[in-house]
């Protein structure tokens, strides 16, 4: 290696490194693929760092979830509801029409707190209004089963936050969320009230049986929705 070649290497290498470093600008951070997908009010999927969104599709379960808000609409996360199921015109069994009976109303009516009903609120109010609204293009909204709701429990949440991924499910409270499961006997101080309904506590993710008259939060779910398939 002669002196000119060495001169070229010794001066050219640092210069090339400096110019390359100056010209190489690091890429902005980007989101990683995730099983939760934000869905806007019309049912269209959004990128993970976009918003606002009204629903979340869980690609692991195929369920479409309501997202709570702080806009004083029917989806405001502060509203609470007593557990109530209206009487339905359907039948509990289709075995034989002669033995079938209509589904009776169950639970406690209008014992939660909200602004959007002239009386107080129950789960049937939120269901009726959300179906009418066709939130995220979907009208088959219902209460989730305990098993379904438990799929949202996120045990590694930050200090003091509810046990859910709050980046996708903001305005979630550290409290009980109703499920569709009911008929389990109440225990302890609630024993005299008979049966209650199941709720998932987003303090720690545990399942609890509480009286229908309790004011708890609600997150609705829809299966087989267009925006989640």
């Amino acid at each position: 290696m002669n002196r000119w070649y060495r001169t070229f290497v010794v001066t050219g290498l640092p210069l090339a490194l400096g110019v390359a470093a100056f010209l190489t600008q690091p890429a902005a951070p980007g989101p990683q693929p995730y099983h939760l997908v934000k869905i806007d009010n019309r049912g269209a999927a959004l990128a993970p760092w976009s918003g606002p969104w009204s629903c979340v599709c869980d690609r692991n379960t195929g369920l479409l979830w309501e997202v709570k808000t702080d806009d004083e609409s029917i989806h405001d996360g502060l509203w609470t509801y007593s557990w109530y199921r209206e009487a339905e015109t359907g039948f509990t069994t289709v075995a034989t029409t002669s033995h079938a009976v209509p589904i009776p109303a169950t639970g406690s009516e209008n014992l939660g707190d909200c602004y959007f009903e002239p009386d107080r609120c129950d789960t049937a109010d939120l269901l009726r209004r959300t179906r009418a609204q066709q939130l995220c293009g979907e009208h088959h909204w219902r209460l989730p089963t305990a098993k379904e709701l438990h799929t949202l429990v996120y045990t590694d949440s930050k200090a003091g936050q509810p046990s859910i991924n709050t980046a996708f499910f903001p305005k979630t409270k550290r409290g009980d969320y109703w499920t569709a499961d009911f008929g389990k006997p109440l225990l302890g101080v609630y024993q005299h009230l008979g049966n209650g309904a199941e709720a998932i506590s987003f303090v720690g993710g545990q399942q609890v049986t509480i009286p229908h008259r309790n004011a708890a939060f609600v997150r609705l779910v829809a299966k087989n929705s267009k925006s989640c398939h």
Partner: peptide, 16 residues
């Protein structure tokens, strides 16, 4: 890292 959060703050966090 938490999916959906655009800002990652490593060890800097709020008390509950």
């Amino acid at each position: 890292p938490r999916a959906g959060e655009r800002r990652y703050t490593a060890g800097y966090q709020q008390d509950g």
